[in-house]
Computed example of a mutant assay.
Amino acid sequence: MFILDIFSLPQKIDFSINSLMISLALGALLSWGLKIHYQRWGSSLSNRVAFSKVFVFITLTTTLIISIVKSSLALSLGLVGALSIVRFRTPVKEPEELAYLFMCIAVGLGLGANQWLATVVASCMIMAITTFSQRQKNDEQSLFLALDWKKSQEVYLNELQNVMSNLMIECDLRRFDSHGECEEVVYYVNIKDSEILLKFIDKLKMDFPNIGISFLDKTKIPGI
């Protein structure tokens, strides 16, 4: 009886192809801007250029789905059933990647609902706030630190962490590899100046002889 009552309600809402075209055009512009923003200001260790290529596709697809589904109650119920069996299985390695994906979906939802002004203004404000936050971080020196050693050297992560926490503004473990006789870790670190960097290298060499040390400046490496 309940099902019959649902489908007896008006199910068709006026659908405008012009509105859809406007939503898709705005979605293309906003997702392109989000793509450039992520490549420039993102701090993910993964390939940011390759990952950001899906932003336009996700945004426009979400816009299309919402634009179609909102015109029919039956389609809305069908979408709920479809989403109950769909799982997102692409590995998301870092929270930042997930945040940008949610941003793409949010833009698609807003544009699909024809909330053009609110979506454009909110998207621009979010990207501006994020840019300002990242610029403050870039006033410091942000680096990827790769350390490698042989297992026989007995280098312990806790001891490494203690050394870095005393000299670094920020220290975040991003990757740990163990293969054959070697182990390798990658940290994302922030330091105040080059003098602290040199002091840190000397400290590492003193406490962990024969350890391999590599620094990569994330702001000058294309593609990551």
Results as ranks from 00 to 15, higher is better:
134 Q>L: 11
152 S>F: 11
51 F>K: 00
122 A>T: 15
44 S>C: 14
73 L>M: 06
133 S>G: 09
49 V>C: 05
99 A>W: 02
50 A>P: 01
36 I>C: 03
67 S>L: 09
89 R>S: 06
84 S>H: 12
33 G>I: 14
155 V>L: 09
8 S>E: 06
12 K>H: 14
114 N>F: 01
38 Y>N: 00
102 F>Q: 04
92 V>R: 00
119 T>I: 08
40 R>G: 02
78 G>A: 05
92 V>W: 00
24 L>P: 04
117 L>I: 09
43 S>G: 08
14 D>I: 09
56 V>H: 07
43 S>L: 12
145 L>D: 04
88 F>L: 10
66 I>W: 12
133 S>Q: 11
87 R>M: 13
132 F>G: 06
27 G>V: 06
65 I>H: 04
153 Q>T: 14
38 Y>P: 02
39 Q>E: 11
48 R>G: 00
17 I>S: 08
58 I>R: 04
113 A>Y: 07
152 S>H: 12
51 F>Y: 06
99 A>S: 14
122 A>C: 13
61 T>F: 12
23 S>E: 05
23 S>H: 11
118 A>S: 09
153 Q>I: 10
92 V>S: 00
125 M>A: 13
62 T>I: 15
18 N>E: 14
78 G>C: 00
29 L>C: 11
17 I>Y: 13
64 L>P: 08
105 I>W: 07
50 A>I: 10
106 A>H: 09
55 F>H: 07
83 L>M: 13
14 D>G: 03
8 S>H: 12
106 A>L: 11
143 L>E: 08
113 A>M: 15
50 A>G: 02
82 A>K: 01
55 F>Q: 01
79 L>K: 04
85 I>R: 02
93 K>A: 04
115 Q>V: 08
55 F>W: 06
14 D>Q: 09
129 I>A: 15
101 L>K: 03
57 F>E: 02
12 K>Y: 12
90 T>R: 03
14 D>S: 10
82 A>L: 07
35 K>F: 00
71 S>M: 01
54 V>L: 11
96 E>V: 05
97 E>F: 08
104 C>P: 00
151 K>V: 09
60 L>V: 12
149 W>H: 06
45 L>Y: 06
127 M>F: 10
132 F>S: 10
138 N>M: 12
109 L>V: 14
42 G>Y: 04
43 S>T: 13
103 M>P: 01
136 Q>W: 10
66 I>H: 07
